[in-house]
């Protein structure tokens, strides 16, 4: 089990308990507020959320710079806005 990476995080959104597709909606809303190159942290549940959200984010050309399992079983996803 890894701990959260130390990187500059410009915005964060906790999507624990939020299913698909609203977790992606919130992710996209947060990304829309950032400037290109800034980093968004999203916390996603294990299972469908962590399987689906990164794929959708990559499809929109953003970069996944980190994906780490947290102590409670949820995932930290770090996204650099394109």
């Amino acid at each position: 089990m890894t701990t959260a990476i130390k990187t500059r995080i410009d915005a964060s959104r906790d999507c624990r308990g939020i299913g698909c597709p609203m977790n992606l909606v919130y992710t996209k809303v947060e990304l829309s507020r950032l400037a290109p190159g800034q980093v968004l942290e999203v916390i996603l549940d294990h299972g469908a959320p962590i399987n689906n959200v990164p794929r959708s984010v990559i499809r929109e050309a953003h970069e996944i710079i980190g994906q780490n399992r947290l102590d409670d079983g949820a995932w930290q996803l770090l996204i650099r806005k394109v």
Partner: peptide, 11 residues
Amino acid sequence: SRHILLADVGV
């Protein structure tokens, strides 16, 4: 939400 999810529409 279904518009926001679309890559070509989005927020």
